[in-house]
Design a protein around this nucleic acid. Structure first.
Lengths: 223, 223
DNA sequence: TTATTATTGTGCCGATTGTAACAACAGATG
DNA sequence: CATCTGTTGTTACAATCGGCACAATAATAA
């Protein structure tokens, strides 16, 4: 609950650093990073102190050193393997989502009650019958769950029994976990509802106050 | 930044209440709600006090009264209209996502550089050329952005110029906002990375401590 | 060598969050 | 009517977070 924000910031730093490095930079200052991800420079420095990343008092931080440290903390650079359960519309879309390849995440298989006849994107889609075997032999630890709401809880139990430790649930129902595991719920409906609420408040305020001051809210993933 | 969690809790209460009511319940206790969404009963009571929802000291809260209040706060029950820009895999998947219909959100149109010849789900998909006109005539205020990363910033500007006030961005790049608007970033890659990190820490800890205590993390949308 | 300057590292503070504990109270029971 | 039980409403509190400001310090210039 509390260090999630912290870790997310670390991941954002990493993204920015990779970008900067690819542009030829070698060092970075706390205020660069702060601007890039929309927080104060002081907070950046505090975060970096927390991961024992020390910079040069005049020349900022070494991008390479920092990336090295972040990679060690966040799980390294070798792509981590996850599976996807529930190859409906959303599931199939995620299977060939552009973002994953670049970010060290590899979806190695999809599972569905009725697997399609041909693989769509080069990622094999298996029948649910083979779920446990696959998890067992590949020692998969993380799964994306994109099954219909009604099936979500049951599939979660099955995944956990099979050895999965982390689940990213997309069904619009808060999944809790039972045992030693991590479950994150990505509820897109909630996101949108939230957005409507904020936009409505924005317009209300403007209507009330006439010309409103610039009011700009950009927020990160609820992740 | 700060009341986002609060509002998200309100929306979660609403979901649970709707479910409970459909099961025939009429009243609910703070600890029911707390259990349902994984927080303490005290926090539930505080939230309810904050929205001036008062319960009966013995009989808990009236579900109907609470839903009424929540609906007023969160934007009522009439479905709110949003559009979706970028009808690639993810975009099309969202266009027929089960969750939206039930949750008072209505995607009224999709837009793409090359709109498909036939509507896939009954939701019309238009060419990008018609974007501004549509927004203008329908007075749309919220958009889902599922275009490729490279185009995200440009399309955002276009949307904002056209009058959109809230954007839910799915491209794996932190979009900031320029003007009076709200932008939320749903970064699925970050979500997964985060999950890997947590699972790894979990396993590390267990390896270190031998038999670990039950350690169960279930968290809501980062959103 | 000395002064200057830019940037880090950190101690402190205010704000906010969620928890714990308890008093007030409504209804049930006898 | 009196008691008792269970739930709310509220107050106090501990933890944490992020911001500010400033001392420490490394590079540079004179």
């Amino acid at each position: 609950m509390v260090r999630k924000d912290f870790m997310l910031r670390l991941m954002k730093y990493k993204r920015v650093l990779i970008q900067l490095r690819s542009l030829g930079f070698e060092r970075v200052f706390s205020n660069n990073l702060g601007d890039a991800i929309g927080i104060s420079a002081a907070l950046v420095r505090k975060d970096l102190a927390r991961i024992e990343m020390q910079g040069n008092r005049r020349g900022g931080y070494s991008i390479d050193a920092m990336l090295e440290r972040l990679n060690r903390l966040l799980g390294g650079k070798e792509a981590q393997e996850a599976i996807l359960v529930g190859c409906g519309n959303l599931g199939r879309a995620l299977l060939n989502h552009e973002a994953f390849y670049k970010e060290g995440i590899k979806l190695v298989a999809g599972f569905d009650l009725v697997p399609p006849h041909s693989d769509i994107v080069g990622i094999p889609i298996y029948s649910m019958d083979e779920l446990e075997d696959f998890i067992n032999t590949r020692q998969t630890k993380v799964a994306l769950l994109t099954v219909p709401t009604a099936a979500a809880a049951e599939v979660r139990d099955r995944l956990l029994r099979a050895g999965i430790r982390g689940i990213l649930n997309f069904a619009p129902m808060e999944l809790k976990c039972t045992g030693d595991c991590v479950i994150h719920n990505v509820n897109i409906g909630l996101e949108i509802e939230n957005l409507f609420f904020l936009v409505n408040s924005l317009e209300d305020r403007e209507a009330r106050e006439g010309d409103s001051p610039v009011n700009c809210l950009s927020e990160g993933t609820t992740i």
